Structures are given as C-alpha cells and as structure tokens.
Simulated scan of single mutants.
Amino acid sequence: MARRLSSVELDFAESAPVRLTFTTRLAAAPGPVYRALAEEVADTPLWFPSVAAARPLDGGAGREVSLRGGVFFRETIMARDPGARYAYRIDETNAPCVKALLEDWRLRPASSGTAVRWTMAGEGPALFRLAMRAAGPGIGHSFKGAMRKLDRHLAGTRTP
C-alpha cells in the first residue's frame, strides 16, 4: 500500500538523521552522465540492476521508479543543474517505516571524466535508521556496480 512521505527540501541532504553517501569516478564526461540520470530516465534499468522500471512523470517534473522486489517510488525533481546536480524527493512509496527520503546526485569534472557523489538522505523510526545503516555496505556495492555499468553503457552509446 502506498504512503505519502514528508515533504522535505534540498537541505535535507545535509541534515537528515540518516545519510548514506557514496562516491566514484566515471570515464564519461559530466554531460552524458547527467543526461543518463536526469533525461534518459526510462533507460535506468539498463545500467542500474536494482531498478526494474523507471519513467518520467508530469513532463519531467517527477519520476516513477519500481525496484526489483516490488518497492516503488513516486518522486518530485528538486534540483536540475545540467552536468552538476540532480536531486529528487520521494513523495510516495510502499517501503515500510520510512518517513522522508531524498536522493542527491552531485557531478563534477575530474581529470579523466566525472566524479560522482550520491547521497541518500532519510528519516524514520529507530528500526528504519538501523536498517538503513545496516544496508549501507550493500547499497554502496550496488551503487558502484551501477556506475560501472553506466560508464560502459555511455562508452557504447557515445558518438564521435
């Protein structure tokens, strides 16, 4: 059953009770990485294996994402800064215990591609906080694998 979450703002990425932050480098430039994250939403399952389906909503102002295993999210895009930042708030989900969630992707040029920082910021009761912290290593592993797949995906779709 879907539930509405608390409506948080961008600063929640820095102030949430639980923050998981992961970083990596990609060979691709920030522009293509941003396009893959923010504009080519339906292609997300091609490079992020935990995502079963994704589609833009409301002319790109939101997204709907289904994870493998049945969890889904309806999201509002909070920040669009091409090549630099993409953030969204989860407004509705069937995930238990969560009170608020926001994900913030930061991109910056690196010497040979893009430095990517992904923050999952959340709030919920003690059980949620404990589960998020315990899941951190697995979420980080999933992130790193997805970023490797994204880099390969972008290398195969880049035009000269």
Rank of each mutant, 00 (worst) to 15 (best):
M1K: 11
A2P: 01
A2F: 05
R4V: 01
L5A: 05
S7F: 03
S7T: 05
S7Y: 04
E9I: 00
E9D: 13
D11Y: 02
F12A: 05
F12R: 15
P17A: 05
R19Q: 14
R19C: 08
R19N: 04
T21Y: 04
F22T: 01
T23W: 04
A27C: 13
G31D: 08
R35P: 07
R35F: 02
R35Y: 05
A38V: 01
A38T: 01
E39I: 04
V41C: 09
T44K: 15
F48W: 09
F48M: 11
F48D: 12
A54N: 07
R55D: 11
L57G: 07
G59C: 05
G60W: 09
A61Y: 00
G62P: 02
R63K: 09
G69K: 10
G69H: 14
R74N: 08
A79W: 11
A79G: 07
P82C: 08
P82V: 00
G83S: 15
A84C: 12
Y86I: 01
Y86H: 15
R89M: 12
D91A: 13
E92H: 11
V98C: 10
L101E: 12
L101P: 06
L102D: 09
D104Y: 03
R106H: 02
L107F: 06
R108K: 14
S111M: 09
S111R: 14
S111C: 04
S112M: 05
S112Y: 02
G113N: 02
T114S: 00
T119V: 12
M120H: 15
E123A: 13
F128A: 10
R129W: 03
R129E: 15
G136N: 12
I139P: 10
G140M: 04
K144P: 12
G145S: 07
M147T: 08
K149V: 03
D151Q: 12
D151R: 13
R152N: 09
H153F: 03
T159E: 14
T159L: 15
